[in-house]
Design a binder for these strands. Structure first.
Lengths: 168, 168
DNA sequence: AGCGCTGTGCATAACATGAATGCAGCTACC
DNA sequence: GGTAGCTGCATTCATGTTATGCACAGCGCT
């Protein structure tokens, strides 16, 4: 969350409400835009850490707004973020927890869990396909996000098969 | 985190320290075991919500311990968790954020980011292979976790190729 | 004397959601 | 023409979850 705001502010100074709109516009419908409240909280923290600074702007016939701009330290933090590679996928997986823990307590057996989960993944896959279908083909960013989600989902489905083989 | 503790307590009552050890033992080295402090915080909340209840147990030559056991409400919550399917992979992806936001600010270009990220993923893949190699073959749970991580990683690598095609 | 294990608790912070607040402009309706 | 209610702009606050790290305390071992 923090780096996203820094990146947007690097392009041009903005206030909270504007940032929310920018995020919604850049990442289309495929992306659940973060809560507006969280944006303000994060901006406050960034200011506390000296990465951004706020200027109050009075507006006629509008509530005042606080326009944030990047400081030198903020610019540095942003560069550092861009430089370091992003961490890979977590090994932690909630469904797998369920798969291991549930039978220990006699809740339900593994086959039931796996089959239900597979149906769920397949339904999600259908949703993604449908979402891709009604997305503006010019919006390459949204389409790539959807494609990424589908690749991950397929990996999960393959993994489900492996679990079924190994744990049966 | 909450459901994991509930599941373990469904098998048998236990105190915080024991739960930490159980988690470490069940999910082998492949799984970053959660912080012990967090376990106590979560147990406190579960108790506040009436899902578990604690009994103080005095021990000779040992600090006292609080043994938690499941309540009827806790059992219900656990069953509900087992019944609902687990959510799929998030569309939210940090690297993708970087890929979209970075060029807007003149930080660095996309090819550099993608190539660096690919090197990083490949290194992670090597690490996972190495980890799989030194994992006890009898520990099927750990091996499956590692395999799942590798499948996800491969999906990320494929996705990187797609991004490179589309955004160049 | 110091290290490591057992066992718990608290401080801090990030992250997320939801609701509340205030003001302005527009529309609908009697 | 007045007013009631909705929408858009802009921010703040209360609450809850997750995660890390440090502090504390007693005991056994070397």
């Amino acid at each position: 969350m923090r780096p996203f705001l820094l990146a947007l502010l690097a392009k041009e100074p903005a206030h909270g409400y504007e940032l929310k709109q920018a995020l919604e516009q850049i990442f289309g419908s495929a992306y659940p835009s973060p809560n507006i409240g969280q944006i303000y909280v994060t901006l406050g923290r960034l200011e506390k850490d000296g990465l951004v600074r706020a200027v109050d702007v009075e507006q006629p016939n509008r509530p005042n707004k606080k326009v944030y701009h990047l400081t030198a330290a903020g610019r540095e933090a942003l560069d550092a973020w861009a430089d370091e590679p992003t961490e890979g996928p977590r090994v932690r997986d909630e469904f797998f927890m369920k798969l291991v823990l549930a039978p220990m307590t006699g809740i339900s057996d593994r086959m039931t869990l796996i089959n239900r989960q597979r149906r769920h993944y397949l339904a999600l896959m259908r949703d993604l396909n449908e979402l891709a279908g009604r997305t503006d083909p010019a919006d390459r960013v949204a389409l790539l996000l959807i494609e990424g989600a589908m690749l991950h989902l397929q990996a999960d489905l393959d993994w489900l098969d492996r679990c079924q083989e190994d744990l049966s």
